[in-house]
Amino acid sequence: MKQSKVFFTNLRATPKMNLLQKLEKLVKKAGIEEIDFKGKFAAIKIHFGEPGNLAFLRPNYSKVIVDVIKAQGGKVFLTDCNTLYVGRRKDALEHLDAAYENGYNPFTTGCQIIIGDGLKGTDEAYVPVPCGEYVKEAKIGRAVMDADIVISLNHFKGHELAGFGGALKNIGMGCGSRAGKMEMHSDGKPRVRSKTCVGCGACGKICAHKAITVTDKQAQIDHARCVGCGRCIGVCHVNAIAAAWDESNDILNKKIAEYAWAVLHDRPHFHISLVVDVAPFCDCHAENDVPIIPDIGMFASFDPVALDMACADMANQAPVISGSYLAEQLAKQGCDCGKLDHFRVTHPETNWQVCLDHAEKVGIGTKSYELIEI
């Protein structure tokens, strides 16, 4: 397969060129203006950050991309889908509150924010995945699938299940509805937390397969009838229904790749990653640890696979920050930090390369890239 072009700029700034101007120059050099945005809906998929976490991308970066798209006549919005776990972003109202609290609003970004899978995480489109080995029909937030163009703006950082979070993770896991996220995280079907359940019956009303009954103010799920759609998770207002969280990390990574294919296939897409504040864990945490490596720079490409590969390569060439979680892991494992994969050392129970290999296999892009520095 032909090499993909990945454009890169470092984080040095001068009075004549600040970081926001460098980002604009980067995406234009990488070809974002080659996309026909005129009169079309463009979704910028971004992570708004869990309140309490301070490593998420500042909204200033998103406004640069919004302004570029608007200048091309595009109808642009920022989006993310609701989370599966219990936090501040599990329904659209709390999600919007969290986004506003972290500085994302129409005044700071220049566009509207739309939660991709609706109020309770149940507004989803079913997208066939003909190439899927594990996913035959992806459950994607409907607003994401209604868009004509997808742009991913990614904070590149560590991740305890995927190894790292980059473009593929932001798109694949991030664009899944709550039921889609359950499918990626779980091999099994949802269960009821009996101590939390109040027996309101909302889950039974939403179940199309009559798999849920309520007896003595306790919901019960008949797994023989349950098809694992996850809609009961979305409607439970006390978070008494949970996913099994039992999928292996390798299969999770492959499912992320297949979900990314569902989102990106057959429409224009473009991807930007900022390798800054590379914390060891996801921005879904309500806290962030110190970065494991110094800030690297900003990357852009039409190919999310090549982009993730380039970011990982440059991150692995960077020195380890003393006192970080990675430095502690290296000391515990007795490793030579100059010869090892930073993300495998940080999270030895998962292999991030599985996702990129599978994404390449299903045809999203290639790991082979040409790095062009501007």
Rank of each mutant, 00 (worst) to 15 (best):
Q3R: 14
V6G: 03
F8G: 01
P15R: 10
M17T: 13
K22G: 06
L23S: 12
E24D: 14
V27F: 03
K28Y: 02
A30H: 07
A30E: 04
D36N: 12
G39C: 08
F41E: 13
G49D: 09
P51H: 07
P51D: 04
P51C: 05
A55P: 02
K63W: 02
V64C: 00
I69Y: 07
K70G: 09
A71W: 03
G73K: 09
K75A: 08
V76Y: 08
F77M: 08
V86N: 08
E94H: 11
H95A: 10
D97I: 15
P106M: 06
G110H: 02
Q112Y: 08
Q112H: 09
I113C: 05
I113N: 07
D117L: 05
G118A: 14
L119C: 14
Y126E: 13
V127Q: 02
P128W: 04
P130I: 11
G132Q: 07
E133N: 05
K136T: 10
M145D: 00
I149L: 05
V150A: 10
H155M: 09
H155A: 12
K157R: 11
G158Q: 01
G158T: 09
G163I: 00
G163W: 00
F164V: 00
F164A: 00
G165Y: 00
G166K: 00
L168S: 00
K169S: 07
N170M: 12
R178I: 12
R178N: 01
A179M: 05
H185C: 07
S186M: 02
G188L: 07
P190W: 06
V192A: 09
R193A: 14
S194L: 11
G199P: 09
G199K: 11
C200V: 10
G201E: 12
A202S: 13
A202C: 04
G204I: 02
K205I: 14
C207F: 03
I212F: 01
A219H: 05
A219E: 01
G228F: 02
R231K: 15
R231N: 15
C232N: 04
G234R: 07
V235T: 15
V238M: 04
N239L: 06
I241M: 03
A242H: 14
S248Q: 01
D250L: 04
D250R: 03
I251V: 14
L252M: 13
K254P: 01
A257M: 07
H265V: 13
H265K: 15
H265W: 04
P268E: 14
V275I: 15
D277H: 11
V278W: 02
A279F: 01
D283M: 03
P294S: 08
G297M: 12
S301M: 06
C311Q: 02
A312C: 09
M314N: 13
N316D: 02
N316T: 01
N316H: 03
A318F: 01
P319H: 04
L326Q: 04
A327I: 04
C337K: 12
K339A: 14
K339P: 07
L340I: 14
D341Q: 06
H342W: 12
R344K: 15
V345Q: 13
T346W: 03
P348S: 06
E349T: 15
W352P: 02
V354F: 00
V354H: 00
L356N: 01
D357I: 06
I364C: 00
I364A: 00
T366H: 13
